[in-house]
Amino acid sequence: MRGTNYVVKRTLFALMTLLVAVTLNFVLFRAAPGDPASALRCRACTPEFKEAQRKEFGLDKSKLEQYGIYVKQLAQGNLGSSFSSRRPVWEELKDPLLNTLPMVALGTIFSIVFGIASGVVAAWRRGTVADWGNLSVSLFFYSLPTQWLGLMLVIVFAGVLPISGISDPFLEFTDPSWWDTFVDRLKHMLLPSMTLGLVLYGDYALVTRSALLQTLGEDYILTARAKGLGAWRIVRRHALRNALLPVSTLIAISLGYLVGGAILVEAVFSYPGIGLEVYDAVFERDYPMLQGAFLLLMLSVVLANYVADLLYLKLDPRISE
C-alpha cells in the first residue's frame, strides 16, 4: 500500500512537471528578443512582408490566444508546423530523433560497461596503481568539455574513421548490401558515440568507485570475508549490488539528459540528429520546432526521472516507508 502511494505520488509529480514544462516551453522562447519574422532577412522582407509573415505564423494574435492554440494542438497530439520549412514538426523531428537515439545508446552502453568495470577495479584495488590509474583516467575524461574531446577525436581519427555525417554519401553508387549499409552507419556512429561515452564513463566510474568503497567498509562485507567467501564473490554478490543504487539512479537520470547533451556532439560531427535541429531552430526563432524538440527532451528527462524513482522503490523498498 505504501508502495502504491509512492508510485501514485511520483506519477502525479511527473505529470505536474510535464504540465509546467509545457507552459515554460511556450514562454521561454518567446522571452528571447526577436521573432521568426524579425529573424528573416531578405530583399523582399519589408516591414509589410514581415507583418504578413507574423500573420501567417499566427504571431499577430495575443500571447494568451497563441498559448491556447498551442495547448489545444498539443492535446490533439499535434506539435504544429515548422515556421522555416512549413512541415509538421513531428515529421521534421522524427528522422533526427531516430538518428540520435542509436548513437546516444551506443555511447551510453559503452560508458556504463566501462565506467562500472573501471569503478569496481579502482575500489577493489584501492590505493594501488590500478586505483590511481583508473581514478586519473576517469577524472581526466570527466573534466573534459564534450565538444573539445570531439574535436580532438576528429583530428586524431580523420582518415581512419568517418568524422562527419551519418553515412557515406557515396555508398549508394557502389550498390551496397544491407550489411555494408549497417557497417557504414555503425562506423559513422562510432566517434560521436565514443565522445559521449568517454565523458560519461568518467562520471560512472567515479560514482561506482565511491559507492563501492562505502559498501566495502560495511560490517556485512567483513562478515562475508570472515565466512571465507572469495573476493570476486564478495564484490559481485554483496558489495556491488548495494553500491549500484546511486549508480542506477545516475544512469536513469543521465539517460534523460543524454538526448539534450547530444547537441554539442552532433554539432562537432555534423551528425544530423535532434541536437542540430534545436541548434538551428534557436537562431531561426522557429517556435514550433523549439517547442516540439524541447517537449521531447523534457519528456525524456521526466520519464528517466520517473523510471529512476520507480527503480529506487524496487532496489530499496525502505524508500516507501
Partner: peptide, 22 residues
C-alpha cells in the same frame, strides 16, 4: 557523373575531411 554536397556543422571537421581525401 554526379556532384555530392556534404554539409558540415563544424568547419574544422570539414578541413580534416578535405585533408584526409574524403
Amino acid at each position: 557523373d554526379a556532384v555530392g554536397l556534404q554539409i558540415f556543422t563544424n568547419e574544422d571537421a570539414m578541413v580534416a575531411a578535405l585533408k584526409s581525401g574524403d
